[in-house]
């Protein structure tokens, strides 16, 4: 009995210690966003700003390109998410259900593409955007992100796991392939679509390397690119940590909200990763 109590106490102690390790950096980030620069430099650990100031938040909106980056990030994220969900579910459905010549080869190609590490695509992507005249434009920023191999794979796996009987019934009613996809298949695929939407949203909202090789005009920066630019010293004098932390905080909030609301889907993604390997 005492041993159980002791081990339970130890278990909680370890959990709380690690919860602090994993969450306190966010506390520091929030607190220091509301500190004066000297206060942040003197008491970086303190969770309570004294005095509480909103100067840096005001300056984020008035003295940096933040509003532009925010607008670009919203645009990129919305278009990319819609595109990825639509194209991935169409392709995943076709690869799983429709019988056409070349399907197996396409799937093998898809598996091969999934193994391509994004970071080695930096120079290649720049080359193709440059060649097509899409470098430094919204289309260069958005179009290459509209389809991703992993999303197609997730949708194909999903359709593989669903029995065909519903579609068979619709087929006898004489529905065409696209109408059936739109009004029978997609509504049925809701759980997979939610997972894919979340995956695409966080992926495109946080995307950084692609913006590095597709645009150079500050008017086309998204939030991660703008933040990276702030850090590398576009601010001029001083370290200005409250401002940088505040900007990073604002960039984190949308993903944090989505995470809290749809947490079980995130967990499922990671667990699915364990299965698919």
């Amino acid at each position: 009995m005492i041993r159980t109590l002791a081990s339970r106490f130890l278990g909680y102690a370890i959990l709380i210690f690690f919860a602090l390790v994993f969450l306190y950096p966010f506390v520091i980030q929030i607190a220091n966003s509301f500190k004066t620069e000297s206060n942040a430099a003197d008491n970086p650990l303190s969770p309570i700003p004294s005095p509480v100031v909103t100067d840096s938040l005001v300056r984020i909106f008035e003295g940096t390109g933040f509003p532009t980056w925010l607008g670009n990030s919203v645009l990129v994220t919305v278009v990319v998410t819609i595109g990825r969900v639509l194209f991935a579910s169409m392709a995943g459905y076709a690869l799983s259900r429709l019988r056409f010549r070349g399907r197996k080869a396409l799937f093998a190609g898809l598996l091969a593409l999934m193994a391509v590490p994004p970071v080695v695509l930096l120079i290649p992507k720049f080359l193709v955007l440059n060649q097509l005249g899409m470098y430094n434009s919204y289309s260069g920023l958005i179009v290459p992100l509209l389809a991703d191999a992993t999303g197609i794979f997730v949708m194909k796996q999903f359709f593989d796991s669903v029995p065909v009987s519903v579609e068979e019934a619709a087929r006898i009613d004489g529905a065409g392939a696209f109408r059936m996809f739109w009004s029978v298949v997609l509504p049925m695929a809701k759980p997979a679509l939610i997972t894919l939407t979340i995956l695409s949203f966080t992926g495109s909202w946080n995307e950084f390397p692609h913006t590095l090789v597709s645009v150079q005009d500050p008017g086309l920066f998204t939030l991660p690119r703008g933040l990276a630019d702030l850090v590398s010293g576009s601010l001029g004098a001083g370290t200005q940590y409250p401002l940088k932390l505040g900007a990073a905080l604002l960039a984190t909030i949308p993903v944090a909200i989505i995470f809290v609301i749809f947490q079980r889907y995130f967990v499922r993604d990671a667990a699915a990763g364990a299965d698919k390997g």
Partner: peptide, 22 residues
């Protein structure tokens, strides 16, 4: 708590760690 850091932006979180390791 343990999972949250992995869904945040790598750039945003790098800014936080840059401050912590200043």
């Amino acid at each position: 708590a343990f999972y949250f850091p992995s869904v945040t932006s790598s750039v945003a979180i790098s800014v936080v760690f840059l401050f912590m390791f200043a």
